[in-house]
Design a protein around this nucleic acid. Structure first.
Lengths: 197, 197
DNA sequence: CGGGCCTTTGACTGGTTTCAACTTCTGTGG
DNA sequence: CCACAGAAGTTGAAACCAGTCAAAGGCCCG
């Protein structure tokens, strides 16, 4: 993907919420940098500090942690138009608990904290947009927590299917399992069961 | 609890993050209203619209949903200095999915959307404070989701004990179980096991 | 074509729920 | 202040869901 196209997509994304004049676009071009990752490369590794927040223009990033049993726990799949970072590390400057890797060749824009503060200051409505973003993020997490605590594996898989039909096509099955908090074997059996029964 | 004291506590709480002059305090007094609930009374019921966000001065509120099996799922216990609302409903104006009830006689300050916008406009740094609040909230939710998906019941209980030793003392055991996403029987057995072994 | 990873399948294990009975605690009215 | 009813907590036995371990088949990519 071209740099110009990535910014263009980002402007379109932003303009759904806030108007952008030429000056604002220029500021964004100067604060957001363009980056690419090839499949299997890392955007962030656990223990490092998350200096950047990423906005995906094309491709897919996966955010995950290693839990205390040494298993990968997938937190999020970020596709076109989504954001990805370790929020805690980005905000506090402490080492990240999350890893973020590319599941496909991915193009994205990155923003550091200085850039963020600059944008908050210069572009009216941007801080509000980020707040709304995080609020929606929080709501989604509440629903997911609710599901994790009260629904069984099959029910959680069906919700995932319904909510992200595109992502199910796109990522390996064992990663979906790790997102749902179940083993690959269990997910395989659930799918078999859904097809036959 | 007295009205004056509630505002006083709130000012102290706010001043940890943002300075407040006389004017700001006056604005807050005019936008946040004082409320009381007796034990077992509701602050919000599922299906109604959450017109308010609450800041607890004294007491304890419990936020919970009824899941699709008709079981209560406790989302949060809000004690002194915490906030409580159905974020989704408050922001969108859609009916709430959450119930919020008082576990004790509780005194708190409430803010509606109009008041919030007013405060964001009039008090510099307030929007930032709310953003940081939500960001921290999000981080906490991520950790809890992680735990829910990858740890067993005993491990989750131990984390809860460590993180909220005061709340464990304060709320009935079966509500802690519903917070952890386990049955009261299981929590009882876990506790027995921890004491003897 | 071959190697390694992903997925599937089977048998077994273990943690958690369910159902039921019993005990303890709490609050309310006589 | 006691009695009693209802709620909360404990304990046991059986059932169930998901995990673990192991092995075989499928598929992608070098």
């Amino acid at each position: 993907m071209e740099i110009t196209q990535a910014y263009q997509l980002f402007f379109e994304y932003l303009e759904k919420t806030i108007p952008l004049n030429q000056t604002s676009q220029e500021i964004i071009r100067n604060t957001f940098a363009f980056r690419k990752l090839k499949k299997r490369q890392y955007f962030l590794q656990e223990g490092n500090i998350a200096y950047h927040t990423a906005w995906i223009a094309k491709g897919c990033l996966r955010t995950f942690t290693i839990n205390q049993n040494g298993m990968e726990q997938t937190m999020q799949f970020s596709v076109e138009g989504w954001w990805a970072t370790d929020m805690f590390s980005f905000l506090s400057g402490e080492p990240a608990a999350f890893n973020i890797e590319a599941l496909e060749d991915t193009s994205f824009l990155i923003l550091d904290k200085i850039g963020r503060d600059l944008i908050f200051e210069k572009i009216p409505g941007f801080e509000r947009l980020m707040r709304i973003l995080i609020e929606n993020h929080l709501v989604a997490h509440q629903k997911r927590l609710n599901a994790a605590l009260s629904l069984n594996a099959e029910e959680r898989y069906l919700i995932f299917l319904k909510k992200y039909p595109d992502i199910v096509q796109r990522v390996p099955q064992h990663l979906v399992a790790s997102y749902l908090g179940i083993t690959p074997e269990t997910l395989s059996r659930i799918r078999k069961n859904l097809i036959s029964g």
